[in-house]
Design a protein around this nucleic acid. Sequence first.
DNA 1: CGAAACATTGACCGCACTCAAGGCTGGTGG
DNA 2: CCACCAGCCTTGAGTGCGGTCAATGTTTCG
Lengths: 180, 180
Amino acid sequence: MVSQMLADGRRQILDILGPGRLLHASVTDVADSTAETLSPTHLERRKLLDPLASSELVEAVLLMLRRAQHHATLLGRKTALERVAYAVLDLADQFGARVRGLAYAEVIFRLHLTRNDLADWMGLTGETVSRCLNALKRQEIIGFDTPEIILIKNLKTLEAAAGGDRPSLVARGTHPATHP
Amino acid sequence: MVSQMLADGRRQILDILGPGRLLHASVTDVADSTAETLSPTHLERRKLLDPLASSELVEAVLLMLRRAQHHATLLGRKTALERVAYAVLDLADQFGARVRGLAYAEVIFRLHLTRNDLADWMGLTGETVSRCLNALKRQEIIGFDTPEIILIKNLKTLEAAAGGDRPSLVARGTHPATHP
DNA sequence: CGAAACATTGACCGCACTCAAGGCTGGTGG
DNA sequence: CCACCAGCCTTGAGTGCGGTCAATGTTTCG
């Protein structure tokens, strides 16, 4: 998780990095920016000498940029429900696994964020996030028994609720989408 | 101006590029993203073969990223007045010129954006931007006789109104800050 | 002079925030 | 084993900031 903190305690989470994502120091070396883990994490250092790694780095920074700009549009112009729907979709892309026994369009994944984390990511409050998640649940679009494990029951409707436009904003990395 | 458009017409301006800023195609080649000029503009193409230009490019992309992340924090966590104050400061940094005859802390510059452009940049509406600008004007923090020419009369107070934290987010370019 | 685009201002409204109460879960110590 | 506690989630009631709608003023330009 990459986040920024304002002097008075307001926090904005800038990005959630799932398996396979790359992180460059230039992102965290800005004043008031920090990176933290939200779950047990395996980190690898990339050497910059390797030209392959260098292009990999440029790709990673450009991905961060595209995600940051898309996120800005979301924060500036989307409603609470659209934001929460989008957060679920993005986390599903990054952490989701297609599971045997689920219908084709169903995805299940573990939220590594609390409601308040989601709020600080989406520019909302924890209460609003909770209300939106439960609204989606009542509409049978998603499901959860414990607050941590989210099941997407109707992907198409969820994407519609997110407001449509969702360009591919995941790492094209070689990492398989397996994660506890 | 770099902006994104949603299917239903909502627009988010992602960044305003003043003199000396660099723009890479990867920013505009994303779906629904466009770049437009708001004033007569002089463009130069940079060759990538030159290793100097290459590092220049990486710098420019990293600047875009830092600005985008800072902007996300602004959109997600700041009030209307803070946003408008920040917009004035950022435009002053990019377009402002210290003018003879003005007090030390005074800066004057031309807004190349309408109130609605500012609104689409700051995630607000034109009416709210107008109200905030006039509030700042009533407090003698800024001044304007025509809507286009903005004078910063009290920089310190304006920075306070913007919510404080404002890391250097301008191009360290070689361009002098002269602009019509 | 007239039209179009932009800016300003006011009145009202609604979405998301605030505040508060209550429930659930997991961890700790008697 | 259970009482207690802390943290998180959920839900409701009420508020307020910023949005919406509308009227008017201003500037520009043909």
